[in-house]
């Protein structure tokens, strides 16, 4: 089963290496990992999507907790959450097919962010299903290049993965 971990870490040099190194040396599989700063300048947040049964996840979480730079781990898989991914796709787009591509872009509420002579770059955000669907739809036009961010996720409503203790409900 796939789990989504929201992990708060000290924004120290090498913290990404520590986390990634832990996964590789213990043989855990990362589906995706995205990282960036949070509302606290000294704290970064990783969203790690990891594949494994409950036993593996228990070990992953415990081992992560042992890293001194890891402040907090939240396995949000079983909770209500919003998750998003951003993808940029460069597709072949001769003038003849541009209309068709624009239609697809509209349907998915994606955006065209660059127009070249024979290409378009399309930006799309959404959950994994939507991203996969838009990629599938664009395939027939010839995908020249594709980059995606990996999943980021956040708990819905009044639940938090945050350092602000007063906001927390655990």
């Amino acid at each position: 089963m796939r789990h989504i971990l929201a992990v708060l870490v000290e924004n120290n040099p090498g913290v990404l290496t520590r986390v990634a190194g832990l996964f590789s040396r213990r043989g855990y599989n990362i589906d995706s990992l995205s990282v960036g700063r949070t509302e606290h300048p000294n704290v970064s947040r990783m969203t790690i999507v990891v594949e494994g049964d409950d036993l593996v996840l228990e070990q992953v979480t415990k081992q992560l907790h042992k890293l001194v730079d890891v402040i907090k781990i939240n396995d949000i898989t079983s909770e209500e959450y919003v998750d998003r991914e951003l993808v940029l796709v460069k597709v072949g787009a001769d003038p003849a097919v541009r209309g068709e591509i624009i239609q697809i872009v509209d349907i998915f509420r994606a955006r065209i962010v660059d127009i070249g002579q024979r290409t378009l770059i399309i930006e799309c955000t959404g959950d994994e299903g939507k991203i996969s669907a838009v990629i599938e739809s664009l395939k027939p036009f010839g995908i020249k290049e594709l980059v995606r961010t990996g999943k980021i996720a956040m708990l819905r409503g009044h639940k938090f993965t945050s350092l602000n203790e007063f906001k927390e409900e655990e």
Binding site: P13, G14, T17, R18, G21, R25, V68
Partner: peptide, 14 residues
């Protein structure tokens, strides 16, 4: 050496 000893220290600092 912090990179090298990452998996064999409880923690390390540069």
């Amino acid at each position: 050496i912090t990179g090298i000893t990452l998996p064999i220290t409880k923690h390390n600092f540069l």
